[in-house]
Design a protein around this nucleic acid. Structure first.
Length: 377
DNA sequence: GTTGCCGGGTT
DNA sequence: AACCCGGCAAC
């Protein structure tokens, strides 16, 4: 999936409305956030493109992820939108990316929106059963002075928080260097930022991120005992809203109850087609840091799906339990150094009990010359 | 020699 | 995963 410049509110809104309901967008400048999102939603993490500090990630299942100072009002769900397939969505986004609403970046405007954009390729995934799209970006995107087409300088900055926490590198400054433009500081003083819980039938609004996190943690995630500890998961369940201001805020004010069918946290998706390694992560499985601890205000994920909460079952191979057991026993008696077997069990085993002539009565393990399952020592 | 079963191969 | 077996060590 590809996305281009979304720096204007109407464009964002448009995108929100046209984006398929099963998808949402994550805009972030932090690779870490992408990883976190991917970690949190391994089944959803779909595709991302990273270039320098810029990243775009399309995640499935929810409409959008709102980052920094961008808030997208929820689109009303219509049957038409529901039926919109991924291809159509891609076309919409493609057209948006080339829409005149989107200002061209200062550098190589034509090429950025047409040339490289097309060269980048907009390729449907041939292997994905879900019809996911992947964006094969041009390989050479390392030059900061020539931002890649899908993300214009303007658009990218539009998704930035006016003031960023210092992670060692001033990102605002970095962005400034990257795009050679002043950082927009619009609306900085004109709005009140609130944090809205997106849990189904909740909608609690608090004035602080910490407050909403704690609320989610304790009320919805049931982490009472560890109310002070956060692994960042709460970030998925609240969003930033702005009050008292312009159209953006107005749009957001109607954000609230997201379509229950889509937004209800306990809903579990059925499709599980995408593996993190093949999508967002791109095999980049370094340390997965908890969600946006380092950039708590940079990214707000509007997303209430709990699928990732299900703790991964430790798929133990069938039979390995018994095997493991026998190995555990192995270590209990004093054994001489290494390579020695466990002492033979004293009890009679199938072979001895039933005899060779009744081999069919043996337990399977005995028949296979494995450690007896029936007469365990 | 008999027994238990590990390690590894094949299907 | 299910099945099979060579081979080793304990008995």
């Amino acid at each position: 999936m590809t996305f281009s410049a979304f720096q204007q509110d109407d464009v964002k809104s448009d995108i929100s409305q046209k984006l398929p309901d099963q998808q949402f967008l994550l805009f972030t400048t932090k690779e870490e956030d992408l990883k976190t999102a991917e970690t949190k939603k391994p089944n959803r993490a779909h595709e991302y493109e990273k270039e320098n500090t810029r990243s775009v990630c399309l995640l499935e299942q929810k409409r959008k992820v709102v980052s920094s100072n961008i808030d997208v009002p929820p689109a009303r769900k219509s049957s038409e939108e529901l039926d919109m397939d991924k291809v159509t969505a891609a076309m919409v986004l493609t057209s948006l990316s080339t829409s005149p609403l989107v200002r061209s970046p200062p550098v190589r405007p034509n090429e950025s929106l047409n040339g490289s954009w097309k060269e980048g390729g907009f390729v449907p995934s041939s292997t994905s059963s879900s019809g996911y799209w992947s964006w094969n970006a041009p390989s050479d995107q390392s030059n900061p002075s020539t931002p890649s087409p899908p993300l214009s300088a303007d658009s990218f900055k539009a998704f930035r928080t006016p003031s960023q926490p210092d992670d060692g590198i001033d990102e605002a400054e970095t962005s400034n260097l990257l795009f050679d433009e002043p950082i927009p500081r619009k609306r900085k003083n004109s709005m009140k930022v609130m944090f809205k819980c997106l849990w189904k039938n909740c909608g609690k609004v608090l004035s602080t991120a910490a407050g909403i996190q704690k609320h989610i943690r304790t009320i919805h995630l049931g982490r009472v005992g560890e109310s002070d500890y956060s692994d960042g998961e709460e970030d998925f369940y609240y969003t930033e809203i702005r009050l008292n201001t312009d159209s953006v805020a107005d749009g957001l004010s109607s954000l609230s109850p997201v379509s229950p069918s889509l937004a209800s946290p306990p809903s579990f998706p059925t499709q599980d087609a995408i593996r993190p390694e093949t999508s967002c992560a791109k095999t980049e499985t370094k340390l997965m840091t908890p969600l946006s601890r380092s950039a708590p205000t940079n990214l707000y994920l509007v997303h209430t799906d709990h699928a990732y909460q299900v703790s991964p079952t430790h798929n133990r191979p069938a039979g390995s339990g018994e095997q493991k057991q026998s190995h555990t026993v192995l270590s209990s008696p004093p054994r001489v150094a290494f390579g020695l077997r466990k002492p033979r069990g004293e009890g009679k085993k199938c072979r001895k009990v039933y005899g060779m002539e009744n081999r069919d009565m043996w337990c399977t393990a005995c028949r296979w010359k494995k450690a007896c399952q029936r007469f365990i020592d």
